[in-house]
Amino acid sequence: MSIVDLKRKANLIRQDIITMLVPAKAGHPGGSLSAADIVATLYFKEMRINPQEPNWADRDRFVLSKGHAAPVLYAALAEKGYFPKDELLGLRQTGRMLQGHPDMKRTPGVDMSSGSLGQGLSVANGMALAGKLDKKDYRVYVLLGDGEVAEGQVWEAAMAAAHYKLDNLTAILDYNGLQIDGPTDSVMSSAPLADKWRAFCWNVIEVDGHDIEALEKAFAEAKQVKGKPTILIAKTVKGKGVSFMENQVGWHGSAPNAEQAEQALKELREEGLSLG
């Protein structure tokens, strides 16, 4: 898929994020929008997957460790054809498939249940270890939040991934700089992030998380690196693509009302049209 087609996919994913959050009346737009280009690149270019066979043993795996960004994953899965797009409108509602946080038991295409922060990298490590044991060539991707890395388990897992030389694993850190209570640097400083991961013996690539071409290159480089895991420290803007949500901490965990959604969708449709 071409760069411009991937941009269109990211744009559609952003529109779907906004659309599904309105009837849900709750959810996390900020960190979903910040990850839209990353997730679009993974699901429409990078990952070897087959929506007709969600449990295919040789598929690449994706763990959304920052599980509250479920809308971005659901939008990508629906766009990819894992389930009908109508399901998006049942997000967070009783008896429906799309839970507030990803649930592998209920949603086709979700490779791991998540939502409790700090656990996804460990799980991804386990999948990568299994791949090596089985001599399979699938890759494992895991998306972390920058607030999430305050969880100690992330660093236990970082140590283990390097120890076991998990070069079939690529982590992506959605470095949007904001968390629920405010700027990450004021809540719990995590900088210097790249140095920390380097010190844990990872291959570190710093990348603009909204530059699809750069993301593609980074994923390609990660595949070439042998003997160590790679992390993309992806600099992003929380709420990316919706002017009034960008860099606004208040949009971490509240859904837009119908009026706000209309404004957001207007902006996103214009962006989509500008892509030609």
């Binding site: 490779d111 791991m112 460990s122 799980v123 490590n125 386990g126 999948m127 990568a128 089985d134 897992a157």
Partner: peptide, 10 residues
Amino acid sequence: GTAAGLAAAG
């Protein structure tokens, strides 16, 4: 957590 991932992969 790692055990969970190993189990998820069979």
